[in-house]
Design a binder for these strands. Structure first.
Length: 413
RNA sequence: GCGGAUGUAGCUCAGCUGGUAGAGCACCGGAUUGUGGCUCCGGUUGUCGCGAGUUCAAGCCUCGUCAUUCGCCCCA
């Protein structure tokens, strides 16, 4: 029972329907994102550690304490990627793609790694499907992502999800910094009443006090200043235009003034895909605009929007994917004849299975039943003598004896 | 890093105030010599997570440890 072979904490094997669900979500994403002109980009799982410290920000938890770090044989510090955006930006910048095209759009999937305490919907190796769109500064760049997500969610049968939307402005002095100052002023006045975590946040990242889950903090910040009221002219215009576009396309969303994204590089639009069915980790995905990220890497600025979905969380919300055709089960006494028949069926594109251990007819039928296939093909002494096969319909319990070719036709029908 | 809950058969779990472990499902066989599902009969399955301690006696009590899980922090 208890085996010594044990999996690493926070990691898991995906098998059965779960593995199928993952594949299905990925396949569907490939197909739909392709319609919007996004191309797949496969980046390495290992990157130089600096890519993330520069990109995500030294002081975030992700970089500060959650990265899996390794030293290679030349003592270079490498990190298992904790997110996907930095790699995509690295690719676009280092290949000079923005000098070749006005717009560049990529999607990616794959495992990400963060050394955190696991809980419902949260793993140390988790899977993301992400999208980045470069070169479109206007709100229709944002809009495109919402449209694409809506179509994707409908394609995978996702229900009970909603968009939450906010704008957190830009680094211009009269925008986020001004808002931040206002907020700090408001919070400092009641610092003592905030929870210990929030008192700490007030110093490190005051915006995050807004999404504290502590009820008292929520109450106290009820009348806190809102970021959308302190936007600069350009950010305000962007936000208003986006709302107008969303309405025109009948995309429903909720405004959430408390929504601030975790990573420093976001600007203007931020959003989350949430569901009440997920437990405490209610976000199935999130994204936003990050117009300043290229500059953070010392590159020419490139307007950028993107999002990432947590596949592990999407799987919890989606119905099981449609089942493929269950295999035909072949049973009989003579091993060689059975395996030849199975081979022939497989070559013909029909899934087939058999029992390699010489079990009784009864037990072979039992196994056939468990496979859940529609047909069982019987190849007994009689059939071998006459060169025919018996095909049994497992749902109806009826069976007929006929030639192998006719059987093929029937199975295919 | 912090808090709570849980580890008993392949799976889901029961096991009273401590007295040497049970059910259902699953699996195997038979009733039915080449016919599954339904029914009936029979059978297999355990270092009670691991290690100490208390006790005449520990699945149960105590301590430690590992793992799982749900939260916090943070995030997808």
């Amino acid at each position: 029972m208890s085996s010594k072979l044990q999996i690493v904490k926070g990691m898991r094997d995906l098998s059965g329907v779960e593995a199928k669900s993952f594949a299905h979500l990925e396949d569907t994403a490939r197909q739909i994102f392709g319609l919007y002109g996004f191309e797949e980009l496969r980046t390495p799982i290992l990157e130089f550690t600096e890519l993330f410290t520069k990109g995500i920000g030294q002081d975030t938890d992700i970089v500060g304490k959650e990265m899996y770090l390794v030293l290679d044989r030349r003592e270079k510090s490498l990190a298992l990627r904790p997110e996907g955006t930095a790699s995509v930006v690295r690719h676009v910048a280092s290949q000079g793609l923005m000098r070749q095209k006005k717009q560049v759009k990529f999607f990616y999937f794959g495992p990400m790694f963060r050394y955190e305490r696991p809980q419902k919907g949260r793993f140390r190796q988790f899977y993301q499907i992400g999208v980045e769109s470069f070169g479109n500064a206007g709100p229709d760049g944002d809009l495109e992502l919402f449209l694409m997500l809506r179509q994707y969610f409908s394609a995978i049968g996702l229900k009970n999800v909603g968009f939450q939307l906010n704008s957190i402005g830009c680094p211009a002095p009269d925008c986020r910094p001004a808002f931040r100052a206002k907020l700090v002023g408001f919070l400092s006045a009641q610092k003592e009443a905030l929870c210990p975590d929030c008192q700490r946040r007030l110093e490190t990242n005051p915006l995050r006090v807004l999404d504290c889950k502590n009820e008292r903090c929520i109450q106290l910040t009820q009348d806190a200043p809102k970021s959308i009221d302190s936007l600069c002219g350009s950010c305000k215009g962007h936000h208003q235009e986006l709302l107008g576009l969303l309405e025109a396309h009948q995309i429903s969303y909720e405004t959430n003034n408390r929504l601030v994204r975790g990573l420093d590089y976001y600007s203007k639009t931020v959003f989350e895909v949430y569901s009440a069915d997920l437990g405490a980790q209610s976000a199935a995905g999130g994204g936003g605009r990050f117009d300043g990220l290229f500059e953070q890497f010392g590159e020419e600025p490139v307007p950028s929007v993107g999002f990432a979905l947590g596949l592990d969380r999407l799987v919890m919300l989606c119905p099981e994917p449609p089942k493929g055709q269950a295999p035909v089960f072949v049973i009989g006494w003579e091993q060689k004849a059975v395996s030849l028949m199975v081979a022939q069926l497989r070559e013909a594109g029909i899934g087939a299975e058999y029992d390699p251990g010489r079990a009784s007819m009864k037990s072979q039928f039992k196994q056939a039943d468990r496979f859940g296939g529609r047909w069982t093909l019987v190849l007994g002494e009689e059939e071998i003598r006459t060169g025919q096969v018996t095909l049994k319909n497992m749902q109806q319990g009826t069976q007929t004896t006929l030639s192998p070719n006719e059987a093929l036709k029937l199975i295919r029908a």
